[in-house]
């Protein structure tokens, strides 16, 4: 899952279907879906949001969702 990646790690999304509908739709709008490569930019302290980069854009998501996105490390 994305939440297990550390800052600087890269991964490829393999399953995003467990994420809530709204968040899934919004990530899709941003071009982030199954098959997208993501790179974790930074992780906020105290269980805060995670900043990921995908296709040249930075997006902030909550840890709750980051836990539900399955990735394979690349």
């Amino acid at each position: 899952m994305v939440a297990s990646l550390k800052a600087g790690d890269k991964g490829k999304i393999i399953d995003i279907s467990h994420v809530g509908n709204l968040v899934q739709r919004r990530l899709l709008d941003l071009g982030i879906t199954e098959g997208s490569e993501v790179c974790v930019k930074c992780v906020m302290p105290f269980g805060g949001p995670i900043m990921i980069e995908s296709c040249g854009q930075c997006v902030g998501i909550r840890r709750r969702e980051a836990v539900q996105i399955e990735v394979e490390r690349i």
């Binding site: 809530g20 709204l22 930075c58 902030g60």
Partner: peptide
């Protein structure tokens, strides 16, 4: 319960 937070960080 519903909450949505996905934010684009522009350059």
């Amino acid at each position: 319960e519903t909450s949505l937070f996905v934010i684009e960080l522009p350059p």
